[in-house]
Design a protein around this nucleic acid. Structure first.
Lengths: 130, 130
DNA sequence: ATTAATGATACCATATTAGTATCATTTGTC
DNA sequence: GACAAATGATACTAATATGGTATCATTAAT
């Protein structure tokens, strides 16, 4: 069981690499450095481009560079892009059974942990990793 | 993306219920109270029995009761039983690419968060939920 | 003997994650 | 302009984990 998927992990590492190199970085270079399958890496970068984290350049000499500053890119932002809504635990019980969501001791405690984790994941940025 | 699966969630709620009722509790009662599919609930309870969290009684009037005290049953223990090793993030990169696991900034930071979460999940027990 | 319970085990369905394949489009270089 | 080198878009496939079902065996109270 993992909180962070490969998608997000690879994305973070790619972003770190790109962030270090001021020039435009092509997929091939990232693939060589990170050892990630090329088509998979491409897909990830395209998504980051669509979400305005990266800027892309087509044609010869093309590739990707950061579109926003490394300080603005947090782990949680990347996780949201690749994993959607992240949560420790939704209530699995039907409302009929568990009508008092507000009172549920389990949920309450998990919520606290969750908030804490999110805060920390928000504070870790590409800038802080490079 | 969930940190806690239904398995674990149902198990926790079942344990809470059983903990409150000092008598032996049968599957049917739990199923009615929690609205969980019967065969699924059975499977969960059987596993808890195998792992010595519950004690089972066969035959008419049989069912389950706690085998250890509610204070000893933490969320993390249940998660381990149903979800195996829980971790925020293993290193997805091959060793050849990322030989310096000790130095990896990403892993280091995640490890810290992880330890924190585990500590908290260890402190929440069935006793503290009931 | 019957019935009401759990034990064990094998199987199936669905969703998510991870990855592949293909063709279209853009752009720099000759 | 032709060509090559890059990304854009999209659809498909494979593997894994999760969430169950189904069935028969075993035990124990009545």
């Amino acid at each position: 069981m993992k909180l962070i998927t490969r998608n997000s992990d690879y994305a973070l590492r790619a972003l770190c690499y790109i962030s270090k190199h001021k020039t435009v970085v092509a997929v091939d270079e990232l693939v060589k450095k990170l050892g990630v399958p090329r088509p998979f890496m491409r897909k990830i970068l395209q998504k980051l481009n669509k979400r305005n984290i990266l800027e892309s350049f087509k044609g010869q000499g093309g590739g990707f560079k950061l579109k926003v500053s490394a300080e603005e890119i947090s782990i949680i932002k990347i996780m949201h892009i690749f994993q959607g809504q992240v949560e420790l635990n939704g209530c699995f019980l039907k409302k009929a059974v568990c009508p008092n969501r507000g009172k549920c001791a389990l949920r309450k405690k998990l919520r606290l942990i969750e908030e804490n984790v999110f805060k920390q994941l928000k504070d870790i940025t590409i800038a802080s990793l490079v």
